[in-house]
């Protein structure tokens, strides 16, 4: 189980404090698929990074499998079974794809996981995991690498973004699969795919750093639709804020 207690993340910007995540309370249960969605800039990636240890919370606690991990570093969290597929995959000069799998402790599984995301090992294992990969290829590699670590908490940040239509759906099935396999894995998937939101066990909706909805899709969906309708076309033709739409 992953528990976020009053989690807050703030950054100083231009001498002003900016709250990116505000008082998030959340409990994620083993064996379930969670879809985290919300407008651009609402704090989804920041939430994922806080769980992985990539950003430091300014308040609150993170509990993983009963243990307070708020002060653990990234490496320790990774070794505790947490994995995060970045929204923007990192490129490595001088490292081959097979090296990355070896470093991830998934040497023997590289070919199988690459195949799952539709990358043929014969073509990709020896390739540099650098800027020579296309955007979609890098994204698929990122997902394969995260799955290959066999995490108990698997976080994917928009796995479908930039991936072609043929692979998109498959990828969304793949990221849900660890939780569906019945071994107590949690899949937390940040996504803008309507279809995936409908398939998830639970939808989490972030708005301006606040968790405004959490529940099964059929409960969250109507609220989300209302929000979408309200959002567009404020007085200046831009976006209305969450405050206006969530009264």
């Amino acid at each position: 189980m992953l528990t976020l207690e009053n989690l807050g993340v703030s950054v100083g910007e231009n001498g002003r404090q900016k709250d990116i995540l505000k008082n998030i309370n959340l409990e994620l249960l083993p064996g379930r698929v969670y879809a985290l969605t919300g407008p651009n800039g609402s704090g989804k990636t920041t939430l994922a990074k806080a769980v992985m240890g990539l950003v430091r919370p300014t308040s609150g606690r993170i509990l993983w499998e009963g243990r307070d991990i708020t002060d653990l570093d990234i490496t320790a969290r990774a070794r505790e079974g947490i994995a995060y597929a970045f929204q923007q995959p990192v490129r490595f000069k001088g490292l081959k794809i097979k090296d990355l799998f070896a470093l991830a402790g998934a040497d023997g599984r590289a070919a199988a996981y690459l195949a799952q995301v539709g990358l043929c090992a014969a073509d990709y294992l020896e390739r540099e995991a650098g800027s020579g990969l296309s955007g979609g290829e890098a994204k698929r590699l990122e997902v394969a690498l995260t799955l290959a670590r066999r995490p108990r908490l698997a976080i994917f940040d928009e796995p479908e973004a930039g991936v072609d239509l043929w692979v998109q759906e498959r990828l969304l099935d793949l990221v849900a699969a660890p939780a569906r396999r019945g071994q107590g894995v949690i899949s937390l998937v940040i996504t803008h795919s309507e279809k995936f939101l409908q398939q998830a066990d639970e939808v989490l909706l972030l708005e301006e750093g606040r968790l405004v909805e959490a529940g099964p899709p059929d409960r969250v969906w109507p609220q989300l639709e209302k929000d979408l309708a309200c959002r567009w076309g404020n007085e200046c033709g831009g976006e209305r804020g969450a405050a206006e739409c969530y009264r």
Partner: peptide, 27 residues
């Protein structure tokens, strides 16, 4: 590159291991 270090650490490498991996790749 800081992001390369961080990514390797999310794969379970210690900071020192991550640094050496990046340097070896570079060299």
């Amino acid at each position: 590159a800081g992001e390369q270090l961080l990514k390797l650490m999310t794969l379970g490498l210690s900071e020192e291991e991550a640094v050496n991996t990046i340097l070896a790749g570079f060299l």
